[in-house]
Design a protein around this nucleic acid. Sequence first.
DNA 1: TTCCCTCGTATTTTT
DNA 2: TACGAGGGAA
Length: 784
Amino acid sequence: MLTLNPEQRDAVVHGDGPLLVLAGAGSGKTRVLTARVARLIENGVPPDRILAVTFTNKAAGEMRERIGDLLGQSTRGLWVGTFHSIAARLLRVEAIHTTRDRSFTIYDEDDSIRALKDVMEAAGFDAKRWSPKAVRNRISGAKNQLIGPSDYSPAPFDLISGIVAEVYPGYQKILTRRNAYDFDDLLFEAVRLLEDPEGVGGHYADRFLHVLVDEYQDTNHAQYRMVRALASAHRNLCVVGDDDQSIYAWRGADVRNILDFERDFEGAHVVRLEQNYRSTGAILEVANAVIECNVDRKPKRLRTDREHGDPIRIVRCGDERREASWVAGEIENARGRYGYEDFAILYRTNAQSRAFEEAFRRAGIPYRIVGGVPFYDRREIKDVLSYLRLAVNPADDAAFQRAIGWPRRGVGQVSLEKLAAAAAAADESFFATAARAREIEGMSKKAARGLFEFATGIEAVRSVLADITAREALEKCVATFALATALAEEEDGADRLDNVSELFATAASFDRDEVDDAAPEATDLELYLQTVALRSDLDDADFDGEAVTLMTLHNAKGLEFPVVFLAGMEEGLFPLSRAIESEGGLEEERRLFYVGVTRAMDRLSLTHADRRWRAGMESHSASSSFLDELPETHVEHTLGGGVRSRGGYAGGGSSYGRRSSRGSEREGGYGSAARRGGNGARGSRLDFSGSDPSPAAPGGSSFSWHREAGRKSPASGDGELEYDYADSQEPVELRAGTRVIHPLFGPGEIVTISGVGRDAKAEIDFDEVGRKKVMVAYAGLRPS
DNA sequence: TTCCCTCGTATTTTT
DNA sequence: TACGAGGGAA
C-alpha cells in the first residue's frame, strides 16, 4: 500500500541507534517519518514509549492522523506535539519540581513585552529610547542559548546588552511571581527539568524508547538540549530535516544542530533523500541552481522523474497594482485547467498581500490569506481571554491590567499605579490587592469601587471554575462583566462581536481529548488556554475550498501548490535589506527563495515591480539579484504591464501546459492533506466562505436543546446582563418565532432556521444587536 | 479619567 | 499606509 523508494525504506526500517535523514524538498520526508513510527508500533513498541516532536501544532496533528491511517488503529498514548506543548505538558505534570504551579499562564510576545516594559521603566530606562521589543529579543536569544539571568554578561560597547543585563533578572522575577512562562521559558525550564541529575529527567529518558524530530534544521540550542536529554537513555533518536530549508536562524535556530548531528551522536546512520516527487524538471533545475549559490551547506542535488515542463517566467511590472492584476489575469486564464485552490501567491512581507486582495476582489477571485493579523491577536479576543486567564491564574498581573482596562470602569492609569505600588509593598498580586482597594491611601472612591467590583466578579467566576467547561467559563465571564454589551456599544462593535462569537465556537468545540499532549492533571480551561496560547495562525488555516492562497514565504514551508507566483522579486524587498545586514543573512534569504521555488509543482512565475508603495512612500527598486542567478535556459521573460521605460522584455503570454496529474504518487507535504475536523476559517481572514464547523450539534431534523432554565434579568441601568444558571434539562423545540437568549447577543426572536444537524443555522432578530445568523451548534441558545 | 486627535514609526516571524 | 502611543482637552 505504501510504496517507498530504497532510501526511504532504509530510513523507515533502520533499527536502533541515531538516524539522520537529510530530506530535500518534496522528497517524502513526512511519509518516512510517519511510516517509521507506524512500523515501530507494528513491531511492538508501545505507542506511549514513542515521542514525535514537530514545530507546529498542525504538523503534529497531521502526523498523528497519518500514523493512525497507516496503522488502521488508534494512536492512543503516542506522544506527538510541538516542542512548546510537550514542554508545557512536562511543566504541568512536574509542577512541584518547578518554580510555578500547575495553573501557570503562557505569555505571548505581547504579554512579555509589556511585562518587560514595566521592568525597564522601573529600572529607569526610557521605553521610547530603548525599545522593549529589542530587549526582549535579546532575552529570548539568551534563553534559547540556555543563558539564565545570572549567567548573562553584557558585551562591551553593546548598549542594549547592558540594559539586558540589568533588567533580565527583574523580568524573570516578575514572570515567576505572576506564575507565568514566556515561550522561551517553556523550553528553558523543560531542559532544566530534564537535565537535572537529581530530578525527574531520568524517568522521561527511560520512558522514551524512540524520539523523532521533524524539521530538525530549525531547532535552537534549547530544543537540541531537550531532544538530547529525552533520547539520552536509549539513543534511538531519528531527526529529519534539510539544511537548505533553514529559514529561522534570525530567531535562534541553529543549523549546526543538523550539520553536527553525526558528530554529536556517534555512529549515526545517515540517509539522503534526493528524489523529488513534486516539481517539474525545469523548476527543479532552477531550484538547484539557486541553492548552489550558497557556500555554507551540505552538497546535494534534487532529481525528479517528472517531465521537464514549462520554463519559469520572470515578469516585470510597473508597480504592485499591475503585478497583482497580472497575476489575477493569469489565474483567470488558467482556470479550467486548475481550480482556484491550486494557486498560491507567496511574498516576503505581509504588507504585500494588500494589492493582491484588491485585485482579486475586483476580479471576483476567491482567496484566503494565511497569516496576517492572527485571530488570537485581535484586541477584543485578547481582552475577553484576559478574564479567563485571570480567573485561572489570579497572579497574572498582565491579564489583570488588560481586563481592568476594558470595559472602562473608572480605573485609569493613575489608580492602577497606586494599586501596583500597594501590591508591590504587600508582595501581593494586583488581584489580591484590588479586593481591598478601599484601604489603599489616596485611591479615589470611584476607582476603589471599580476595583472591588472587578475583583468580586473574578472571584465569582473562580468559585465555579472547577466544575465547568471552557465554554461555560467564557459565558460566565461575558455575563458577569457585561462584555457583549460593552462591545456592542463600540464603534466597530459588530465585527468585534462576530469575532467573540467565533471565540465561543472555538471554546465550544474544544475537546481535551484532541489535545495530543494533555497533562492529565490539567483542567479543561487550563488546557484550552494553553492551546490558545501555543496556537499559530497557520494551525487554523483551512486549505479546503476553492480559493487562491496568499501567504508569506515563511508560512509556505512544507506546502505545495501546482501553480506558484513569487511576488515582489526586488532588491531590498527580497532579499529584504534588513535581513541581509546580519551575518549569513543573504544566504538565509536565498534559502527562503529556494523554499519558495520548491513549493511549485507545475508552474512557477516570479514577478517584480519597478515601483512599489512601501511604508507610505513610493520606492523604486531594481529586480532581485536572485533573478540573475537563474539559469537562462529554463527562464522566460515577460512584461506584466505598466512598465514606463522603453526596453524590458518581449514575448511570453500565458501558455499553460496541460494540467498535470494531481494527487498521483507525489507525496503531500503538510497541509495539502485533508484536514481533520478543522474549525473553519478562524485564523485567516477569509473573504470566501469556508467555515465548516465540525463538532456534533444538537438535533437532527427536529431541533431541541437542553434547557438550562437560564433567566436573564432585564437590562438594568447601565446595561448589565446577568444570568442565573440552574440545571433542569428539559428539551425545548426550536423554530421560527421562538424567543431565545444568546450568551453573547442577548435576547432575540428566531426568524428562520436553515440547514440540519451540525450545519443548522438560525437567523435571529436580537433586541440589542439586530439581526444575525448563528450556528445552532455553537450558539448556546437558551429559551427565553 | 477618558476620549480624541495627532504624530511618528515600522515593515520576516513555527511557539 | 496603518497602527499604537502619547499628549491635551473636557
